[in-house]
Design a protein around this nucleic acid. Structure first.
Length: 512
RNA sequence: GGCCCGUUCGUCUAGCGGUUUAGGACAUCUCCCUUUCACGGAGAAGAUCACGGGUUCGAAUCCCGUACGGGUCACCA
């Protein structure tokens, strides 16, 4: 398995979230970078579920992760939900496998049994804290005075083990050594083992901790590159050490910069979302405990490719001035080592701009489809396909989200429910109804009703009466649209058709 | 607090020792287009490249320090 040097093996990367809640956008970006890197190099992208903490398991979280990736179009080649040669891909189901690796470390004396209870450890930490040490560690110095297989007589250890007493397996970190590794994004990173502690590898419940599980699984699943968040950087040296203990070649590492919150300090957290008026999750998340719903990008109206494009550019760019990229183009242009080192502050305005770009590039048929879905959701009658498409195209310039199509142009789907009060008082006069009725008569008399013909009628009426466009134009608009903004009123009337247009003009005259 | 990582316009960033009077995008403002709103186009404003020392003929780019920011210090991931 390790005869072929890492660099020569086909690229295999993994996204390994833990199902402790909804995946947030930072997680999606990590998945995306992994995916882009894999595809760029013709490799495989795997999805592994890290559910070794049974206390933090959240029902529905795994399904949420799977659905989020599916919506984004980040399809795993292998892993939870799709299967593969290294199944199972859920760590809880791999539980028996980890024990033998812990044993291997125990046998080679790179790990040891520890019997200290969580309560005892907590007491020691508290004591250390009052003594002025805020950071007590179970390490090469303190382990000599703890209850473990290094300090206890062999028979005593045997006895405790045999009696079924709870224990953990801890890594035996060497005392005085510099651990170095070359991060693909950050370059050389080095940490002295004096600053590392004897991390628990196997927990009291027999489950591995993240540290053991990720190293073992990455090895077993033939992972060549570990691409994960910066929050893992401090424990990367431990992982390097673990690979060495096992005498395994370590994969390449790349620690991604964090996504920062738009206001104040700190990383973007799951709680920041709706508080600041934008989603932090890909999909809506319904918290069954609190009954609250956190909003998602999908439901907010984002196109998956726009969402991905936006995320990709939070920390990376192709080095030229292009900004709008399809997933395929992202794969082509992506370079992991070009990822920025510093954290990126998220900006929702820019996110909206990306969506607008993608929306505008959509073919009319797709646009019509999105509009139809939106109308259905709102319970608005859906017009014929040809009408739908023309309406969508007509309204496109004013839309950032597909939902804006209807929100800014509801008058294309039903008569205005009311007339803009402010504009009415400004533009509608006592003469308006009479003028509109004359126009209506002339529209009715047109041999063929079209935008050009209607505009012709309107303009000749203006020259005839000497009225300015600014006087009568808004009045016509109010009658037809209810508002004074939007596409050309003649285009709107042409789409509505003569009958509907006349109906609205008369209705407005009657009502005002 | 210890350790680790980072620091270019308000924001995302380009830049890898000379081609830079530091480029682009979002946001802001102005003008044009449109007798509406948007779209589009043109332009403006906005960064003494955190600061201080080096190295060099020459530094945003290399080195060291300081400051600031972030991450991390669990039988969580």
């Amino acid at each position: 398995m390790n005869e072929i040097p890492l660099s020569a093996r086909p690229v295999r990367v993994r996204f390994a979230p833990s199902p402790t809640g909804p995946l947030h956008m930072g997680g999606v970006r990590t998945a995306l970078y992994n995916y882009l890197f894999a595809k760029k190099h013709g490799g495989a992208f795997l999805l592994r579920i890290e559910d070794t903490d049974q206390a933090r398991f959240v029902p529905g979280a795994e399904e949420y992760i799977l659905e989020s990736l599916r919506w984004c179009g980040i399809v795993p080649d292998e892993g939870q939900g799709v299967g593969g040669p290294h199944a199972p891909y859920r760590q809880s189901e791999r539980k028996p496998m980890y024990r033998q690796y812990a044993q291997q470390l125990l046998d080679s004396e790179h790990a040891y049994y520890a019997f200290d209870t969580p309560e005892e450890l907590e007491a020691i930490r508290e004591l250390a804290l009052t003594a002025g040490n805020p950071n007590w560690q179970y390490n090469s110095i303190t382990r000599g005075s703890m209850k473990n297989s290094l300090t206890l007589p062999a028979e005593e250890v045997e006895r405790r083990l045999a009696s079924g007493e709870a224990y953990v397996v801890r890594a035996k970190i060497p005392r005085n050594e510099e651990v170095k590794f070359q991060d693909i994004i950050r370059g050389w990173v080095s940490v002295h083992t004096l600053n590392l502690d004897d991390k628990v590898l196997l927990k009291g419940d027999g489950m591995p901790t993240y540290h053991l599980a990720n190293v073992v699984d990455d090895r077993l699943m033939d992972i060549t590159h570990v691409i994960r968040g910066e929050e893992w950087l401090p424990s990367a040296p431990l992982h390097i050490l673990l690979y060495r203990f096992f005498q395994w070649e370590a994969p390449g590492f790349a620690h991604l910069p964090l996504l920062l919150r738009p206001d104040g300090n700190g990383k973007l957290s799951k709680r920041d979302g709706d508080r600041l008026g934008f989603p932090v999750f890909p999909l809506d998340w319904h918290n069954s405990e609190t009954g609250e719903t956190a909003s998602g990008y999908r439901e907010r109206g984002f196109l998956p490719e726009a969402f991905l494009n936006m995320l990709a550019f939070l920390g990376w760019n192709p080095g030229d001035n292009r900004e709008v990229f399809s997933l395929a183009e992202l794969i082509d242009a992506f370079q992991l080592h070009k990822v920025h080192k510093a954290g990126a502050r998220f900006d929702f305005e820019k996110a909206k701009w990306f969506n607008q770009q993608f929306l505008r590039n959509l073919p009319p048929a797709s646009l019509a489809h999105l509009l139809k879905d939106d109308l259905l959701r709102r319970g608005v009658a859906v017009p014929a396909p040809a009408y739908l498409e023309k309406a969508a195209v007509l309204l496109l310039d004013r839309a950032v989200f597909s939902s804006d199509l209807y929100e800014n142009g509801s008058y294309l789907f039903h008569a205005p429910a009311h007339y803009d009060a402010e504009m009415m008082s400004k533009k509608w006069t006592a003469d308006s109804p009479a003028r509109l009725r004359i126009l209506a008569e002339r529209f009715a008399a047109l041999p063929a009703f079209s935008a050009e013909a209607a505009e012709g009628v309107f303009k000749s009426y203006l020259t005839e009466t000497g009225l300015g466009f600014g006087i009568l134009g808004p009045v016509l608009r109010l009658a037809v649209n209810g508002v004074t903004v939007g596409p050309s009123v003649f285009d709107i009337m042409a789409l509505l058709g003569r009958e509907e247009s006349l109906k609205r003009i008369h209705a407005a005259c009657d009502a005002n």
